[in-house]
Design a protein around this nucleic acid. Structure first.
Lengths: 343, 343
DNA sequence: GCATACGTTGGGAGCGTTCACAGTTCGGAG
DNA sequence: CTCCGAACTGTGAACGCTCCCAACGTATGC
């Protein structure tokens, strides 16, 4: 709710033309103008032309608030990034996702609004904003365990789709996820097949499904993993570097490490190189994501490709279905092993 | 204007409570509920309490469309990034700006909506969307020369503030800019004072004010610059690398290069190091921005600090003033030389 | 005691749309 | 020539809110 003390009306109202103005200029009724605006069905040629001319002449633009008030729709959805803002700029995955969603939504003439909910203060404001009718639905990205955002949205009855398996909410909300666990299995199995004996892991945050599931996939294969072979990071490059250092200190004899994000893998490699270990000669490094850095870094990364395009497509599809009244659903998309130089 | 053929109303309307519902539960009139919602002035203690209880009980959330329809305000502003989307994620300056603006606006209880207008298709859709009343004003970042966005906004009468000097629109629109020209002068003067004789430049895009002004500042000092001493990039790291290569081929005897963004400077340094030239031993490199990489790269960057915090503050201040009816204005903020290792 | 002022309250008007419905026109079949 | 339906058009009633005005006490000053 807005600060009511803010100056309210000093602004000189440049009166915007309304539908009635357009109707008057065109010499028709409001109803005809409305019909033209909404597709032009059942409007005669001359009337249609007159209205279009009048719109251009008056510079009329539909008042979205008035329209939404009656239609109960706003033709826009929110892309809620529930992460500290910096991550948005560091992690290329968000970029991929965002691009995909924007594109698919544009085909439906729906605008996407990006909101970054870094602090819990932000999350509260955005929860309010989102449920005030500004958007028809929401795409929620990177929801950490225990964030109250999902409950908030659910409570308000706003349709939404989560990216990644929403820990603890799997049965109640729609989500689209890559098959993280299987991806991890594929990778570790591949490392094994290349003769690596002692494979460590740098896992992601364990309050996200990606973190949990990739670790689980690793354990599926490396059934005898000891705590000394397991480290964790927050997906950032710096955290990968730090985790690699800790991991190597705990287990100096590792011959391969499965790093749960490409960015962390880059960090890990740069630590190893500084420490005088060659990759993949002394130790093999595998990433996860197949993001852009995977090809530009040296050595290029053997990694697991996440189908980001399909993820965003499915998220939008699910959200639109949801808005149209369908029940919630989950989609799991396959991941793919990409072999390059680092392992 | 939305696709009118889209299915319109299959969604089961979970009826949201209205003010009348709240009023009925609280045993007061709609007017009193409204007063409570808007600050609670001139409302008796018991009434206020009853209304607040009723709001909680019914789960009432204000309908923003109805409110905006009568107030003509939406309490949100757009942050329009008029760049290909990738840049958003690569250039840390946008991050700084975005963070600053969000923060200042939050103090005024105004939500910031990020819209990325990469393609001209996008720009059109966003122009329409923005003028349909969704936002009270816009913060426009990185406007390239010749983009029709400013004209569009101006034509619609929407208040907006541009970041950076809007080439060709200086007299008609509000903007906040750092003193790029003076910053460039400071840097090149400093390089001169350190004994560098032949100073080259890697400029930014010349359809932006930053690109033009920094080059102008360089020329103010290096009055005898030849074309062979001048190269250009698009502010990205990759373009800095490529530009450095071209520059060195054209002028192998340069002893310093003023690179117009930190990111490009990082690229330039990495090229030089690969080419076996030491920085700053063989050749000094100076950046521009004082972004985060300036301190983390090796050698750390001598650069020009842009006052991003103050820029975002001023942008918001100007925009709010604009929305309140004030005339347009321009703010130029000083830049500062930061000396580190690279020069 | 009466007029005045002030804090509080209820309700009507209106914001700019969409939508349902009723009315009009017109062409072709009976 | 009449009648019917299809194509087109105009109008009133919402949508849910804010704002204004009138009406009410109740306290204050003469």
């Amino acid at each position: 709710m807005a600060d009511p003390n803010r100056s309210r009306s000093t602004r000189p109202q440049r009166q915007r033309p309304t539908m009635d103005d357009v109707a008057a200029v065109a010499g028709v009724s409001r109803g005809t103008v409305s019909r033209v605006l909404n597709g032009g069905h059942n409007v005669s040629g001359p009337a249609l032309e007159a209205v279009e001319r009048a719109i251009r002449k008056t510079g009329y633009v539909v008042n979205q608030h008035a329209r939404s008030l009656v239609t109960q729709r706003s033709d826009s959805v929110a892309f809620i990034l529930s992460e500290p803002q910096d991550r948005l700029f560091e992690d290329p995955n968000f970029n991929n996702l965002l691009r995909g969603c924007t594109q698919v939504l544009a085909e439906h003439d729906i605008t996407l609004l990006l909101t970054v909910a870094g602090t819990s203060e932000d999350r509260k404001r955005i929860g309010r904003w989102v449920t005030a009718g500004h958007v028809d639905g929401a795409l929620v990205v990177s929801n950490h365990l225990g964030s109250p955002l999902l409950d908030e949205l659910k409570g308000r009855g706003l349709p939404f789709v989560v990216c990644g398996r929403p820990l603890g909410h799997e049965r109640e909300v729609s989500y689209v996820a890559a098959d993280d666990r299987d991806g991890a299995r594929q990778m570790v199995t591949y490392l094994r097949s290349r003769g690596h004996q002692k494979i460590g892991i740098i896992a992601g945050p364990l309050d996200t499904s990606g973190g949990v599931d990739r670790l689980a996939g690793y354990r599926d294969v490396v059934t005898d993993a000891t705590p000394a072979m397991i480290e964790g990071g927050d997906y950032s490059q710096a955290s990968g570097e730090a985790a690699m250092e800790r991991l190597l200190r705990a287990s100096p004899d590792l011959d391969a490490v499965f790093v749960c994000s490409d960015l962390m893998a880059v960090g890990a490699i740069s630590y190893l190189q500084r420490a005088g270990r060659s990759v993949p000669g002394d130790i093999a490094i595998a990433g996860f994501d197949d993001s852009k850095v995977a090809t530009t870094t040296s050595p290029s990364l053997t990694t697991i490709r996440q189908p980001f395009n399909r993820v965003s497509q499915e998220m939008v599809r699910l959200l639109l279905a949801h808005i149209a009244g369908e029940e919630h659903a989950a989609v799991i998309l396959p991941t793919e092993l990409i072999i390059r130089e680092s392992a």
